[in-house]
Design a protein around this nucleic acid. Structure first.
Lengths: 253, 253
DNA sequence: CGCGCCCTTGATGTAGATCAATAGAAGTGG
DNA sequence: CCACTTCTATTGATCTACATCAAGGGCGCG
């Protein structure tokens, strides 16, 4: 499943720490990292498994090492919607709350670095500098979520799809699976059409039609359902209805 | 403009502190409150004025004392969308960032308790307990924003409108303008139709039609464009497509 | 080989946007 | 205080993007 030779986590367990938790690693001293090492465990979750159910007591937090975790909310009438996607290096779990308002599910096979929530909360209490970084990370996340909300609200389906493909393209680059700046970078969509459609507030059918349109207009070339070659990045950006700068802000959530 | 005899703010300037900032007041010691008092100022902003422009250096933070502040994002093609509303006791401003990704505008005449951002950041650095409360508040806010995103995404316009009216009804109660539990509480919508429509991702026309439908079906009675009598709260909740519990979570953002 | 699961493509229906007009409300100046 | 402009809210008529319903088609897996 994983393209990484070694998994790693915010605890610094792996000597070649490919995945850092941005929030935590910046501020943690060597001793602090060692302490984290003692309370954290790397765990694998197969596709579709529930990491944390909605409205259940939440006991674990941590960060994504590999794969994609979807954050979703089920309303009373049964229809649930994806409200967020977590990629490697993203923090997951709900700190300082006994129950999670959302469910965390493995959208692909995932590798997580998990920690006992109360233990990590105690750790934060002992290390205000780390808690400070956590606050900054959450403020950035808040901006990114609002930015995304603005996109899903006011834009057409095509604009949303173009935006998401751009985000995936950049994410792929971050994971060094290919070079975004290459002539024709390959974009990998790790999720099912249903999940993507759900995240975008549309249907698999409309999503499919729009992807085919992008293919017909030579913006992308479809390799298979989950891999596209990005032929015309500028046109993709134009289709998204956002400036490149704004798009990049969403990625660096 | 204000129904409150005395304005007050997180600094505790007013002896009868009606409005507290939930995040800050909980954890601040008396000395800390005094220190806040020294760096904060109550300021009034007329309707429509820009408190903090998008992409401008952000210098002030604080909390809303009276009125409603809208948080909006303008995209490249000119259409801007409201991504959040701030009510009395809500914190505004972007901490730990030199520029704001959103603009803060007075949606009504507003009274704010403002502070110099760097000064408040220094204050937080000196008082980890307060910063801890700020983190918890932001985590709650993150959940609320995601919850709202799920609503605007997957639900019909009527469901969104019913949800928002419910939120305003509860907010009104919080401000003691009326009693939500009264037989027929009066709901006050302080915003223009355009702003509400924008926040809900719809148009003033459809908003108006749906409000008239709610009136025809005796869920509300329209007093004037900005004041409704809530005749059937249960039906309103049913129309929202959410459980009452979920709705209440949105309000206590 | 055949069953089941996604993805795609087609045909049809509809919620809500858009266009257009009117009616109030609120402010402005004489 | 009354014309006059201006802005917002409502109502009506039409149009369209997208959901929904309904088949196929490709691919993996037992």
């Amino acid at each position: 499943m994983t393209e990484l030779a070694e998994v790693s986590c915010l605890c610094g367990k792996s000597s070649s720490c490919v995945v850092h938790n941005k929030a935590v690693c910046q501020a943690a001293s060597p001793e602090a990292m060692a302490q984290l090492g003692r309370i954290s465990h790397v765990r694998e979750f197969p596709w579709g498994s529930v990491i944390q159910a909605q409205a259940e007591p939440c006991t674990i937090v941590g960060n994504v090492v590999d794969g994609v975790v979807k954050l979703s909310s089920a309303s009373i009438n049964g229809d649930d919607h994806i409200v967020g996607l977590l990629f490697p290096s993203d923090f997951f779990g709900r700190l300082f709350s006994d129950e999670s308002r959302f469910s965390y599910e493995a959208a692909t096979d995932v590798t997580l670095c998990t920690m006992n929530r109360p233990a990590f909360e105690r750790f934060l209490g002992d290390h205000p500098a780390v808690e400070h970084e956590m606050l900054k990370a959450k403020l950035d996340e808040l901006d990114a979520v609002r930015e995304w909300a603005a996109i899903t609200n006011g834009h057409t389906t095509m604009e949303r799809i173009a935006t998401l493909i751009y985000v995936f393209a950049k994410r792929s680059r971050n994971q060094h699976l290919n070079n975004f700046d290459a002539v024709h970078p390959v974009v990998h969509l790790p999720l099912s059409r249903r999940d993507i459609a759900d995240y975008l507030g549309t249907t698999p059918e409309t999503l499919s039609r729009n992807i085919q349109t992008l293919s017909r207009t030579k913006v992308i070339r479809i390799l298979d359902a989950k891999h596209f070659e990005l032929l015309d990045a500028n046109e993709l950006i134009r289709q998204s209805g956002e400036s490149r700068g704004d798009l990049d802000k969403i990625v660096s959530s």
